[in-house]
């Protein structure tokens, strides 16, 4: 029986080794070689001494933060409303639907909407305030990034709202809490897990967004993803590209630690 159980784990273990552990190990390994194949720590020195990379890192963090914040502001009320409505499954489907379409196609659709001759500028034209430059601005970049990421924030929050026991909410009201108090003291703390899952699902990919930065941002927004792409495809300096990759992986670990903290604590107290 035991033996058989071990067999069930095999595909999972193989998957993790081949597609998670091995690539990460390779990236770390590559990051210690310079462009001529010599083992060195110079890549890290370059990274931490160059104003360009540090500025780019700050830039990436700042935009990832903004994207996460905006999606959160939109997602929580949406998920809450979704949780209350009648035809949940239908609304949910409508939110998931856009994620089935390729990212590139969605980006091109936005180019059409935002361009000088696009729908929005036509609309603004009616009021005599168009055409405005919308493409290649930070605004358009944030709008498109938010649009693309939003389902990944709504879903975990929605799930945690669904899991919330309604009798807790009723009890809070019975005991005289106002709506606002019920929300801040009961609902929000109990759905925090969903919020954190959403933050993880958005913040980390946003750090390395690169295609949107060019298509929608016109390279006005430069993130670490841009630099990695360039190092692997143009410069062929895989070492430097990997170094930036390692930095991203470390950042990812930090975010996971920060957002996963409470769960760990809870486990300890449960024991």
């Amino acid at each position: 029986m035991r033996k058989k159980q071990w067999l069930y784990y095999l595909p999972y273990i193989l998957w993790i080794i081949l597609f998670v552990l091995a690539p990460v190990a390779l990236i770390v390994y590559q990051s210690f070689f310079d462009i001529n194949g010599q083992a060195t720590l110079a890549n890290y020195a370059t990274y931490f001494q160059s104003g360009t990379y540090l500025k780019m890192t700050l830039n990436s963090l700042w935009y990832a933060f903004l994207i996460t914040l905006i999606t959160l502001l939109f997602s929580y009320p949406t998920a809450y409303w979704l949780h209350q409505t009648k035809h949940k499954q239908l609304w949910l489907l409508l939110i998931i639907l856009p994620t089935w379409i390729n990212l590139l196609l969605k980006a091109y659709a936005f180019i059409g909407i935002f361009s000088q001759d696009g729908a929005i500028n036509h609309f603004l034209g009616w009021f005599g305030i168009g055409p405005q430059q919308i493409l290649f601005t930070n605004f358009s970049f944030l709008v498109v990034a938010t649009y693309i990421e939003i389902p990944f924030m709504i879903l975990p929050i929605f799930n945690s709202l669904e899991e919330l026991n309604p009798s807790l909410v009723n009890a809070s009201r019975d005991l005289g809490a106002s709506n606002w108090q019920t929300f801040t003291k009961v609902i929000l703390p109990l759905t925090m897990a969903g919020v954190k899952a959403g933050i993880q699902a958005i913040f980390i990919p946003s750090l390395s967004l690169f295609m949107l930065t060019r298509l929608i941002g016109g390279n006005r927004v430069i993130t670490l993803g841009t630099a990695i792409e360039e190092h692997f495809l143009t410069t062929m300096n895989w070492g430097m590209g990997s170094t930036i990759g390692v930095v991203l992986i470390v950042a990812m670990g930090l975010i996971m630690l920060m957002t996963g903290e409470q769960k760990a604590k809870k486990k300890v107290t449960n024991k």
Partner: peptide, 17 residues
């Protein structure tokens, strides 16, 4: 040479920033 290509790209990246 790879080093020069690297330099071209680093400078261009700075221009982009």
């Amino acid at each position: 040479s790879p080093t020069t290509v690297g330099l071209y790209n680093d400078l261009f990246l700075e221009f982009k920033m």
